[in-house]
Amino acid sequence: MRRDLIRQLLYDMVLARLFEQAAAEQYALGRIAGFLHLYPGEEAVAVGTLRAADPGDYVVSTYREHVHALVRGTPPEAVMAELFGKATGCSRGYGGSMHLFDAERRFLGGYAIVGETFSVAIGVGYWLAMNGEPDAVLCYFGDGAVNQGTFHESLNMAALWKLPVLFVCENNHYQIGTEIHRHSAVAEVWRRACAYGMEARRVDGMDVLAVHEATRDALRHVRAGNGPYLLECETYRFRGHSMADADAYRSALELAELRARDPVEGLRRRALAEGWVSEEEVEAIETRAREAVEAAVRHAEQAPEPAELHRDVYVQPVDLYSPEIPARRAAR
């Protein structure tokens, strides 16, 4: 096992956990508003998949996407500033938590309507295939999204035209408060891919190394021109669906069992046990991540707010709607 990869994964996992904890705190302080969907428990999915991807690959994600942006390389300052609605945010304060974008890093968002990521991803994939580009698209979605029409529509087209798309299911077993057996007739998402003749498999989404390896294999398949692939990552979220969720539909026992499989803890333990990293290295990584998050919060607090309401609605705006409104009858 490559030590630098392990160190990178560990840093990403710790950063992801600490960043989301800080976001929750800042939300409680009233500095972050709106809907805030956090990722603790699911870190191995974004980290494992995105570290197996190339920088040239495109990423299309959902509203639970802070960690995807961070792993892609969007600076924590820019992500936190976006959550604060500040002008230095990665969407300049116009998108918020659910709409992070970083075009330079091929991070295409940030979609808050469940099921949208499928069609955007096949569009990017279509363009890549049409032009014979070597890059792929990573398309993220939850277990709840697979009952949306676009899942079926888009998987069909992706398979039909052999588009270079890796569909990554973040199966955290819940669609807000509805457990997967109560929302899906077939609860194993990967099995649905066979309807489109698509390669698929399920991987332990709490094990970042397993996710990383499965993604590498899947992307090899995709890049070889074999068409799309569906990778189901079985995972859990430790917090409620969003900050608005009191999380009353899961038992304490269920949560305790999940936490015992903590993916961040799991990687740390394994890396130490295998001798891939030393205690000192782990500490240094944790310190570095903590400092990055603290710096991000400091930055976001001090960053300016965006001021312009009417920018970027159109690339080429045409304003025909400001005729002088006459205050009173003019002589005529």
Binding site: V120, I122, G123, V124, S154, N156
Partner: peptide, 15 residues
Amino acid sequence: SENSFTGLGVGAALV
């Protein structure tokens, strides 16, 4: 698949 092939257009337009 109107919603998805129109969304496909959106995705392709982005890149």
